[in-house]
Design a protein around this nucleic acid. Structure first.
Length: 467
DNA sequence: AAGTTAAACAACCGCCGATAA
DNA sequence: CTTATCGGCGGTTGTTTAACT
């Protein structure tokens, strides 16, 4: 699509241009640059563009708030900067991304996450906004079709790079790492685990930002990570929500979860850094994982529900693997602490307390990162490893102990757990979960022990309770 | 042909860090 | 040292168009 509104609408105001003009709210144009002047919003006209171009030619970039003062352009400085950066500045490359660019974006995103500006620096002529839009569209598209966001080769490449660059060197972050993540604080407890389990979690640079469930998913399906990490928190594809018909849990429940997830932890501000917006991907974890699990579970019995693409099959397959892995962990059935504790226990095991001198993390990686067939993963060897993880699953110091203890006692007192969850998540969940506990709802499928969604929950707790 | 959905694009908003006053 | 301002960034929303039913 090469359409440009300004070309088409040359000189013609859009409806909202004439109606939505707003007094500068201070956020835009800062400092009342207009002194109450009504600043225009909405699409730019070519006339405005010309003014801005002329202004920049004369005065150069920067000092954007002066544009309105000196050029007669009724636009706030921010708007001018954005317009210039995204559309008017020279050497901008227009048109669709080339395959090379797309590949680069994927690779860069695997390294950097949602650092659009940094990614744009690697793509001459492209803007962060373009890349961001591309990526968001890609996410939707891939998610809709049930495909992993990252191609396997990218995952492998990242894995190899993370190994070869020593990116897992604990507190000694290399320049590469620092450059890319200089604003991130890596929780020590997580990091220590990671140091010992490099193979499990190949994408070091992303670690501070990802939910623990995402970390686990990395181990299970590296390509899946970005879907969870980077999906804008409120851009839930409606088709996804539609898939909740498979479950009895409606979207509002998830919103509650999301609110819970995104609520700043009560303990400290530093932790909120770790719950930066990108961590909002957890809800998407829930959505996508649940959807996929649902597909996986219902695939055999309900082939008529949706047309199934090969990608769907692959992903469902993958999640059967994932699910089986969790089941094999034999961890508590509670909504709390499953995937995360699995992961952490994996880390703990690998960090020196592994049983029988086995390298569980390595095995883990061999099985999943390399995307080996499920029959490999489902081998008894793997299953036999489950006690190792189970062994330390409840040692997770990151979880609220009492709550976790309740959670670990799922079989004994799920009601207690249910009430705890309900306290946090509200009545919607409460009723759902009670149904589940009572075995009266099909949501048990979604929220029971097999549930990736529930398994994702502890990530929140853990991340928020990190020191 | 009309309605619906997905994709692409543009722009705004809010937050945050840097820096000048 | 504090405050205000600016610029940048990432998230989100809204609009338009193309494709599909």
């Amino acid at each position: 699509m090469s359409r440009t509104k300004n070309e088409r609408e040359d000189g013609i105001f859009y409806k909202d241009q004439t109606e939505s003009s707003l007094i500068d709210d201070g956020n835009c144009g800062g400092g009342g640059s207009g002194g109450g002047v009504v600043l225009k919003k909405g699409p730019w006209t070519t006339a405005e563009d010309a003014i801005l171009i002329e202004y920049v030619k004369k005065h150069g970039e920067g000092n954007w708030n002066a544009v309105q003062k000196h050029s007669g352009l009724f636009r706030c400085g921010k708007s001018c900067r954005l317009r210039w950066a995204n559309h008017l500045r020279p050497n901008l490359k227009k048109g669709a991304f080339t395959q090379e660019e797309e590949q680069l974006i994927i690779e860069l995103h695997a390294k950097m996450g949602n650092k659009w500006a940094r990614m744009a620096a690697h793509l001459p002529g492209r803007t962060d906004n373009e890349i961001k839009n591309y990526w968001n569209t890609r996410i939707k598209r891939r998610q809709r079709s049930g495909l992993p966001l990252y191609p396997p080769e990218v995952c492998l490449q990242e894995l190899q790079e993370s190994h070869s660059t020593g990116a897992f060197n604990g507190g000694d972050k290399g320049p590469h790492d620092i450059l890319q993540n200089n604003s991130y604080e890596i929780p020590e407890v997580i990091f220590d685990c990671l140091k010992a389990s490099q193979n499990v979690l190949p994408y070091v640079p992303e670690l501070p930002d990802m939910s623990t469930s995402s970390m686990l998913m990395k181990g299970l399906e590296p390509a899946f990570e970005a879907v969870k990490l980077e999906l804008p928190s409120l851009q839930y594809p409606e088709t996804e929500l539609g898939n909740w018909g498979t479950f009895s849990s409606p979207p509002p429940l998830l919103e509650s979860v999301d609110a819970f997830i995104q609520s700043p932890p009560p303990t400290s501000g530093a932790e909120s850094d770790n719950l930066s917006p990108r961590n909002s991907g957890l809800l998407n974890d829930l959505l996508h994982q649940s959807k996929t699990l649902s597909r996986a579970k219902t695939h055999a019995s309900d082939k008529s529900s949706n047309s199934t693409t090969p990608g769907d099959i692959v992903e469902s397959f993958t999640f059967n693997i994932c699910q089986t892995e969790w089941e094999n962990c034999g961890e508590p059935l509670s909504p709390m602490g499953i995937s995360a504790t699995s992961l952490l226990s994996e880390c703990i095991s690998a960090s020196g307390s592994s049983l029988d001198g086995q390298p569980p993390a390595e095995t883990f990686t061999e099985s999943h990162v390399k995307s080996e067939p499920a029959d490999h993963i489902l081998t008894p060897e793997i299953k036999n490893k489950s006690p190792i993880r189970l062994d330390s699953c409840c040692h997770d110091t990151l979880l609220a102990s009492s709550w976790l203890e309740q959670g670990c006692g799922y079989d004994k007192d799920q009601t207690v757990m249910t009430n705890s969850i309900a306290t946090l998540l509200g009545d919607d969940l409460s009723s759902e979960d009670k149904n589940m506990a009572a075995g009266t709802s099909i949501s048990s499928q979604a929220w029971g022990r097999d549930s990736c969604a529930w398994n994702s929950m502890p990530a929140v707790c853990q991340m928020s309770e990190l020191p």
